[in-house]
């Protein structure tokens, strides 16, 4: 088990660094950082000075090596745009984003799992069709639109929640719902198909032959098997929420990593963008790693080969 985790972790870290390498190359080839720092209409001489001052005249792979060495020392570099260490920028916002991501995940779990189970247990009835309709609708609705509608309904017309900002927990209710709702369709569908398959399995028949029915049958024999594939997808969804809350954070004016990423990209702030991509990749592979570990914990066939 431990060696299994160690292997997976090593692989995960390797993937994260590969992503950072690709991002570094693409960013530095697609844009000229010196231009970006100097701003539009700058003198070619100024640009050349900047290039030398920031060491941008050295070959790409040397600069990547520098950057990598910095990251490994914990030195994330300095933002061109904010004129602050990137580490500070990230530290200021990471808590907000994590709060948002985890609350969104809770929303997803709270809606998708019961709904999927309900649909599976009442297969081909109006309940199933209603759940499917809900899933399709949720998938069709864009995040920013749902966000705006919720703001109008629950912040403007019925002022229950604040319109924007990130100071109190009330601020997180609407954005967490918006961000969480976007993950409901895939998770719900997976829960539904998983549970349908499990409920038709031979071991469920065995459990029924032992006198298990309805609730106890579901909780004690079906759920764990049905959740196995769902766990993996939930972990991936959480990764997406950390890195992909750009739109939701913008709509609700939440000062998180997503918004920072957007601002850095618009400001061509390459050091910040680079670190954010690396962090998002790290979160993503970390979540996949977590999913593997959870799956191993839930499924003895993986745990004990």
């Amino acid at each position: 088990m431990l060696s299994y985790i160690a292997q997976r972790a090593a692989l995960a870290i390797a993937v994260a660094f590969t992503v950072s390498l690709a991002a570094f190359m693409l960013l530095n080839i697609a844009t000229d950082p010196a231009y970006a720092i100097a701003g539009e209409d700058a003198d070619p001489e100024v640009i050349e000075q900047i290039r030398q001052r920031f060491g941008l005249d050295r070959p790409l792979w040397v600069r990547y090596g520098d950057w990598l060495a910095g990251v490994l020392r914990g030195d994330f570099g300095v933002s061109y745009y904010w004129n602050k260490p990137v580490a500070t920028l990230v530290a200021e916002r990471v808590g907000t984003t994590l709060t948002l991501a985890f609350s969104a995940l809770m929303v997803t779990i709270a809606i998708a799992i019961p709904l999927g189970a309900l649909a599976a247990l009442n297969r081909n009835t109006w309940i199933d069709r209603f759940a499917l309709w809900l899933a399709v609708s949720a998938q069709a609705v864009p995040n920013f639109w749902l966000g705006l509608i919720l703001i109008i309904l629950f912040a403007v017309m019925l002022p229950i929640f604040p319109v924007s900002g990130d100071h109190t927990w009330q601020h997180f209710v609407l954005p967490a719902f918006v961000l969480g709702a976007s993950s409901v369709p895939p998770v719900m569908r997976l829960m539904r198909t998983g549970l349908i398959e499990v409920m038709g399995a031979d071991y469920i028949r065995t459990a029924r032959a032992k006198g298990y029915r309805s609730g106890a049958l579901l909780m004690r024999h079906a759920l764990r098997n049905a959740l196995l594939p769902v766990v993996s997808v939930l972990a991936v969804q959480l990764g997406q929420k950390v890195g992909g809350s750009v739109i939701t954070e913008s709509v609700f004016a939440i000062n998180g990593l997503g918004r920072l990423a957007l601002q850095s990209i618009l400001g061509a702030d390459i050091p910040t963008v680079q670190i954010l991509i690396f962090l998002f990749a790290l979160v993503f592979v970390g979540m996949n790693l977590l999913a593997d570990i959870l799956n191993a914990a839930l499924d003895p066939r993986i745990r004990i080969g």
């Binding site: 031979d202 028949r205 032959a209």
Partner: peptide, 28 residues
């Protein structure tokens, strides 16, 4: 059904099936 599950299924009538490979729950 409730009484049948509590007093007959598994207690007065036991059953075994054709597919031993899949008839046991893999995670317990």
């Amino acid at each position: 059904d409730r009484q049948f599950a509590q007093t007959v299924q598994g207690s007065r009538i036991g059953m075994i099936f054709q597919e031993p490979m899949t008839s046991l729950n893999p995670v317990y």
